[in-house]
Design a protein around this nucleic acid. Structure first.
Lengths: 98, 98
DNA sequence: ATTATAATTTGAAAGTTTTAGAACTGTCTG
DNA sequence: CAGACAGTTCTAAAACTTTCAAATTATAAT
């Protein structure tokens, strides 16, 4: 007897990650974060990438909720960084090719 | 002098693949195709998965256009199979975990 | 406390994707 | 060739996502 269980929750997690990656601007933001390891505040990302800061915040939230990005607060700034652990586990090689 | 070129076309290709994967029904279809290697016609998939045949056709097209699925015609049927080459190259381990 | 700065949330509009039924196309069988 | 069957395309509605500006929240400096 084999137990094979396909869980909706796992599939929803997969979908959440792929949805987060399924947007040109978010791919560009991931590349930006991969290359700029500090000063990744909402504001500086927005300025560098010519995006509205509320829009940067919106996209970062989607990346955060997919566990692709983590955040550290420094005073009134928030620094975002890629979660290399998630990329390594779920998308090995992806960042290297990006 | 280093040449680093980020091409919009490559990013659009990435987005196309992730978009194809960013849907619960398509994840389920991929799992179905992974487990059912023959009799993967539009009709049989639709029947097994309780989906309208036009909707199956729609989703298969998206998977096909992302190079995640290939198609072989047999008479008036069309068999879909996963493109293991694409999965192996871009998403190593994904199918094993699915 | 007040003011300044950074980030987030909200709300409305624009854009995109998904769905299902009907119409259509292509292939096979008698 | 006509009828049956498989798959695709079209259409319109519903659902969902993205954008931007304005309002709000949070933290810091004076």
């Amino acid at each position: 007897m084999t137990i094979e269980q396909y869980s909706l929750k796992d599939d929803e997690k997969r979908v959440k990650i792929f949805k987060a990656l399924a947007e040109l601007k978010r791919i560009e933001m991931i590349r930006y974060l991969h290359h700029h390891r500090d000063n990744n505040t909402c504001g500086s990302i927005g300025e560098s990438m010519a995006m509205d800061k509320s829009n940067v915040s919106y996209h970062l939230k989607i990346l955060y909720e997919a566990d692709l990005v983590s955040v550290t607060r420094i005073g009134q700034n928030k620094n975002s960084q890629l979660r290399e652990d998630t990329f390594a586990e779920l998308l090995p090689g992806f960042l290297d090719r990006l």
